[in-house]
Amino acid sequence: MGDIKQYWFVIRELTGREIKRKYARSYLGILWSVLQPLLFMLVMTLVFGVMFKGSIQNFPLYYLTGFLFWNLFEQISNSVMTVLVDNRDLLLRVKVPKNVFILSRCYTALVNELYSLLAYFPLLFLFGVKPNLKMLLFPIDITLCTFFGLGVGYILSILYVFFADIKYLYSVFLTMLMYLSAIFYPVEQVPMTMQMVINSNPVYCYMLFAREIMVYDTFPTAELWFKIVFWAVGAYLLGYLVFRRRENEVMQNI
């Protein structure tokens, strides 16, 4: 919190630079953050909507809700992983805490997520979902998922400095994790052993929480509450501890 208050201007400037660089030479620019989830939803509905029509109620929203949380986690952890190496020159020239660069990438992912939500909420009501008080829990789910992704990102950012191949290994791991997150298929249709694995997947827990409160008007169970809080707090504390202990060695190996 101290870094955020003291270096908020720097974080905003770094975020603006990241967004401009991401959408450089693009005519639509930041609008792609709105269009991308919609296009993915359209494709997945055409491909899998008929297949799971009888087992997944409101498939487009089921998929889109899961995709938004997967995209948030993937963007945060992936972008934070390379931030120290990507900003090597700035780290050498400017006396700014390394944590500021981490937070700027996290903030960038949140900004992109907020733009994606501009398409999500109108679709909820377009598909007949009525507003309810449970939807007020949605920001809590977003916040906890952000802390989980940030905690993973802290660890990856240190590993990437010492072991660049972690980028490629993590890419393979993300692919596996995505298919174990039940983004586009019902958990009930896989074997019981696989169901246990999926229910232990932190990213799936955040997806499930959001689907219950946003799509199906169901209050999450105490077990699910425990899981999303446990993974967020545990991952963040572990990641920040690893980052603080090894950040002084970064400049020697970057």
Results as ranks from 00 to 15, higher is better:
K20I: 00
L123H: 08
K20Y: 09
N78G: 05
A119K: 05
A164N: 15
L126W: 12
Y236Q: 08
M251N: 06
D141A: 15
Q6I: 00
P60H: 05
K20H: 02
V197G: 09
N87E: 12
V187Y: 12
F230T: 04
V50K: 15
N201A: 10
L241C: 15
L174S: 11
L159W: 10
I76H: 06
L42H: 04
K167L: 13
I11H: 05
N99I: 08
M251I: 02
D165L: 05
G153Q: 02
D141I: 09
S104G: 03
Y160Q: 11
R93K: 15
L224R: 09
V172Q: 10
E74L: 08
V242D: 07
V129N: 15
T108K: 13
V203N: 04
G16V: 00
N87H: 14
E113N: 13
V197D: 07
Y23K: 06
V111N: 05
E212M: 14
G153Y: 00
L224N: 08
V161P: 02
S33E: 13
V229W: 04
K22H: 03
K167C: 01
F121V: 09
V100N: 07
I4D: 06
F163Q: 03
L14V: 00
N201F: 10
V197N: 14
P122L: 05
V47G: 02
F148Q: 03
N112W: 10
S55M: 02
P97L: 12
M135F: 10
D165S: 09
R246A: 15
V96R: 15
G29P: 03
L133N: 12
N253C: 06
Q57W: 11
N58E: 03
E249G: 08
K22P: 01
W231K: 06
G29F: 07
F243K: 01
L137E: 01
F163G: 01
R245T: 00
T45L: 02
T108A: 13
L14A: 02
K20V: 01
P191S: 10
F52D: 04
G149S: 02
R246F: 15
M196I: 00
I198P: 07
I4F: 11
Y168L: 12
I76A: 06
L39G: 13
E18N: 10
G149D: 03
E74T: 12
D89S: 02
E188F: 07
I166V: 15
S33D: 14
L144W: 08
E212S: 07
F163C: 01
I140W: 04
L72R: 06
N78M: 00
D217H: 14
F184Y: 15
M178I: 00
L90S: 12
T143E: 10
N99T: 14
V190S: 08
K20S: 03
M1R: 13
P186N: 11
S26C: 07
A222T: 05
S77C: 05
I102A: 06
T143H: 05
W8L: 14
I142R: 07
P37L: 10
S171P: 06
M178E: 04
V83N: 09
Y206P: 07
F69C: 12
R25I: 00
E223S: 14
V34W: 07
M207V: 04
D86P: 01
T45K: 01
S104M: 03
L114H: 03
P131W: 07
I183V: 14
K130F: 05
M207I: 04
P186L: 09
P202H: 10
F67V: 01
I140C: 02
Q189S: 13
Y206A: 02
V34D: 08
W32Y: 04
E249I: 00
G151K: 03
